[in-house]
Write a protein that binds this DNA or RNA. Structure first.
Lengths: 337, 337
DNA sequence: TTGTAGGCGTTATCAT
DNA sequence: ATGATAACGCCTACAA
């Protein structure tokens, strides 16, 4: 029962050699004699020996782990946008023999754990998603010399960390232009609370296009959740605003919009056209399927991971602030193809 | 730059005392002299000292962390069912000063990390979700004396670990009975691949009710994803099977069913009634909203966490195999209220 | 090729 | 109340 984990020392003793030789047999087999190596390997197999990870890390090894810091929301513990990012990066990182781990960076107790991990060397690099960073976190990352990259936001307060994001402005312009092309006359924008640059850039795209077309603007603010979209529509109706186009700052919100329109008997796309932002996987499965602006999440986070690896290996990243292009994805929540 | 993390030793030296006193001031302040304590506390604040987590763990401390082992799917890196479970348990555990961490237990590289964590003492207990366990994992858990609880499946191979699940059979009976009550004459069941007991229990509920009502059965198998549901419907259509009721083994699949019915011009619930299983949050947001069988995920995983804590603190859990009741949740994918 | 000493940062134990 | 020592399990650096 108390099988008390085998240690290097035990194996060494059993074989009548020093533990260093065993350690070497594992990490630098080429520096060990032929016979000894075989002897050791046999013993390793028999005992099913596995070096203790934290002992290694405490002794100075890299953890070969990249942490992803995420902010859960009401609908999902890992919102789809982040999930896609993590997937993309994980796949790429594993080819370099790196693991990934997802942390809730917002809930108090989880953040404590996260900080412990960071200043224990359990994390070699961090991908910090917009919304998940705060002062403590960034400082801890900094004093522990853990490379960090921000994904989704171009601006991370006072800390000069590399960023990867999409061209929110032009993406937004594409989306609203498309609504105009669909013949919408009264286009509403649903944006998020707070002052996030990404939100403001998307909003600017909206206002610019509307100005250019001489249309009256209407902006409402909500949470970045499905329910947020539902409430956005309710608010518009309550305020007696009429509209035939809605540009949402996220797909989650657009989903809620679709849902509430259906509830209120508003036909999409016949009465109202709806555009989202992100292109998360479920866009295909809303009813109707959701037209949106695609951020290449896999590529973005793969790029972020790449920067991290570069920094970890001592090189300067080629481009500290990379901005990806967006793509308009047309499905059935908008009228014209 | 190289701010080389402060250590106990450094603080001690600066204060001209031994590091043990500093350590005690942190962990057992009552065993330290008044003046010394104040002196130390002041220094701790000034240096922003934080004990290194892994050093503590290596020295024998508990990590106060519970790991959740999850199997991602195509749609979500953390499928909603697990997400809800984790949320529920996390909230409860934090009141006991425990943290939670989510691991991908299926991807090869991630599993390696997971195993490292387990045999490093980085995890005090494990909640293993159905589908995420395999031989290696369970054995590692076992040889490392890490308490584990399975959620979602009653049976975990040869390992005698406690389980928490729902009464799949009666839940399924409720669901299919309801479809009958709605007047469905040709009820189809979509189940999952493999031989999972939970799937089979749900299937048995279906076959029993259909037999009792003298109805002909039709079962198709798919993946547990949205796309799986889509394909289920396609298959039925391809086989030229007519149906007016569908009981799905999960909400994700039901969602796909809803979507594909819409695509094919099949009206839900007028032409076909659809029932899911799980009651994940997005059930409210499908079109139409999804009738389903609710598993109390928060409560289940809270209970699982409770067992873990009991075992960790040396007590025997009261009930090693707990089964929760289900509840029928009626929304708009079925006809009668 | 192999072994010895020391350190990574903490805590428990046993003295003082 | 405080300190010295050893231990956790591994690795680097140096010596043999």
């Amino acid at each position: 029962m108390k099988e008390n984990k085998t240690t290097l020392e035990e194996i060494a003793k059993k074989l009548g050699i020093s533990k260093m030789t065993v350690s070497r047999a594992i990490n630098h087999p080429e520096r060990v004699g032929e016979k000894t190596l075989q002897k050791v390997n046999k013993a390793l197999k028999e005992t099913e020996y596995k070096p203790k990870f934290i002992a290694r890390v405490l002794a100075g090894s890299d953890s070969r782990t990249i942490g992803f810091f995420v902010k859960p929301n009401k609908d999902f513990i890992i919102p789809p946008f982040y999930g896609e990012c993590v997937k993309g990066a994980t796949e790429w990182l594993k080819s370099l023999d790196y693991s990934t781990l997802i942390f809730n960076a917002t809930e108090e107790r989880s953040k404590l754990l996260l900080l412990d991990y960071v200043n224990s060397g359990l994390i070699d690099g961090a991908v910090v998603f917009e919304g998940s960073y705060d002062e403590t976190l960034l400082r801890t990352l900094n004093t522990n010399q853990i490379p960090a990259v921000s994904v989704g936001e171009e601006n991370v307060g006072d800390y000069d960390i590399p960023t990867v994001c999409t061209d929110n402005y032009s993406g937004s312009v594409k989306a609203v232009d498309h609504l105009v092309r669909c013949g919408c006359q009264q286009i509403v924008h649903i944006t998020g609370h707070g002052e996030k640059p990404s939100y403001q850039q998307r909003m600017k795209g909206y206002t610019d296009v509307l100005e250019k077309n001489n249309m009256t603007q209407k902006i409402v603010k909500t949470e970045n959740t499905i329910e947020g979209g539902v409430e956005g529509i309710r608010q518009l109706i309550k305020e007696n605003i009429s509209f035939d186009g809605v540009f949402c700052f996220s797909d989650l919100v657009a989903w809620g919009v679709l849902r509430e329109c259906h509830e209120k008997g508003i036909k999409v796309p016949d009465d109202v056209c709806v555009m989202g932002f992100d292109n998360i996987p479920i866009c295909e499965y809303t009813t109707p399927s959701l037209s949106t602006v695609s951020q290449d999440m896999k590529e973005m986070s793969r790029y972020a991971a790449g920067m991290l690896i570069q920094i970890i290996s001592g090189k300067k990243p080629d481009n500290r602030h990379r901005r990806f292009e967006t793509e308009l994805i047309l499905r059935h929540s908008t009228k014209c193809q």
